[in-house]
């Protein structure tokens, strides 16, 4: 496999929130990359730091209480974390180079500004075009994301649209700005099932047509295995396993990944069969143990795990398959 140049490379990212109960290490030494025209999924439970990681790269962390403590994010050869959060350079990255799509389509658009005005404002922020040209680009973008009667829709307010429609508008922003990378943070979670599939298909279609890359942040491992090239699994602010989708499904190494895969509901399962769950709850990020963070919930926990420090990512297979576990487990063994 020829070495491709990474589109975005994040190294040793650390983000903490300073709260009354102490420092919450939301992102704890996270490194990942995405190549041109690649689809990468970041999977994990709520509160594992997967969204905060993306928000950190975009420098959209509320500060205070949040603070990016270290690390770099190389986009096209430049470390974008070096830019000041409100600087012109950073704003040029946001929206133009990297577009974000959020979980809550009902609240992600401004309720008192028309869709057209919101869309054209973003376009005119990044492209030197007249008001009229921007409007036409907006209409085209809406048409491209499959919104009927785009001309009329431009004059609508967000509350006059359905959730799926609004999520299409969010995608239209990325289309209009010709972004290199789209970060979709739980893009379909808040939608109903049929709309979920449509929006996801649209997103993949846009990625394919525009030759962009896509990072999908989700808690639904079952969903992303269908289209992601590679997967990062996060737990307690760290990446605990990464690899190609095929490797991760067929030979997961980390007990947490194994747990997640077992928890995916199967259509062919016996109707009386109970869904498998991972026992326990995610750890308190303000009081992380020195040992492996998954230890209290781990079904394979060995005595040695209690004595060893938190495990680092180690290569466990080809094609960049890494896992952070002291034990050498294969799913076949279970």
């Amino acid at each position: 496999m020829a070495e491709k140049k990474h589109l975005l490379e994040v190294n040793h990212l650390k983000t903490s929130f300073y709260t009354d109960s102490g420092e919450v290490k939301a992102v704890n030494d996270v490194s990942y990359y995405i190549d041109e025209q690649e689809i990468v999924a970041v999977v994990g439970e709520s509160g594992c730091g997967k969204s905060v990681t993306q928000m950190s790269v975009m420098q959209l962390i509320q500060s205070p209480p949040g603070k990016i403590l270290g690390g770099e994010a190389i986009l096209e050869g430049r470390d974008i974390l070096k830019f000041r959060a409100t600087s012109k350079e950073m704003r040029a990255v946001r929206g133009e180079k990297i577009s974000m799509i959020f979980q809550e389509p009902m609240t992600s658009l401004n309720p008192v500004i028309t869709v057209g005005k919101q869309l054209t404002e973003v376009i005119r922020t990044h492209k030197k075009v007249s008001r009229k040209e921007a409007w036409q680009m907006g209409v085209d973008a809406l048409a491209n994301v499959g919104i009927p009667e785009p001309e009329a829709r431009m004059k609508n307010y967000p509350f006059e649209m359905s959730g799926g429609m609004r999520q299409r508008v969010m995608i239209a922003v990325a289309v209009a700005c010709n972004s290199r990378l789209i970060i979709a943070d739980e893009p379909t979670t808040a939608l109903d099932v049929t709309t979920q599939a449509q929006v996801m298909e649209l997103l993949l279609d846009v990625v394919d047509k525009m030759k962009t890359s896509l990072i999908v942040v989700t808690h639904n491992l079952g969903l992303v295995t269908r289209y992601a090239d590679r997967i990062y699994v996060m737990y307690a602010g760290r990446i605990i396993e990464s690899g190609t989708t095929e490797d991760l499904i067929t030979k997961p190494c980390h007990p947490y990944t194994i747990g997640l895969l077992n928890a995916v509901p199967k259509l062919d399962a016996n109707e009386h069969e109970q869904l498998t769950t991972i026992e326990g709850a995610p750890p308190d990020l303000a009081n992380l143990p020195d040992t492996c963070a998954f230890l209290p919930r781990c079904p394979y926990a060995a005595e040695s795990c209690r004595k060893l420090p938190c495990p680092e990512l180690q290569q466990v297979g080809e094609h960049g398959h890494f896992s952070a576990c002291h034990l050498k487990i294969r799913r076949e063994d279970t």
């Binding site: 959209l60 929206g95 959020f102 500004i113």
Partner: peptide
């Protein structure tokens, strides 16, 4: 609110984020 975060995520200038959005 989420829409203010969206405006920032789209690279809108801070002035417009505060006074418009």
């Amino acid at each position: 609110q989420d829409y203010v975060r969206t405006a920032r995520a789209n690279g809108i200038s801070e002035g417009s984020v505060i006074f418009r959005h």
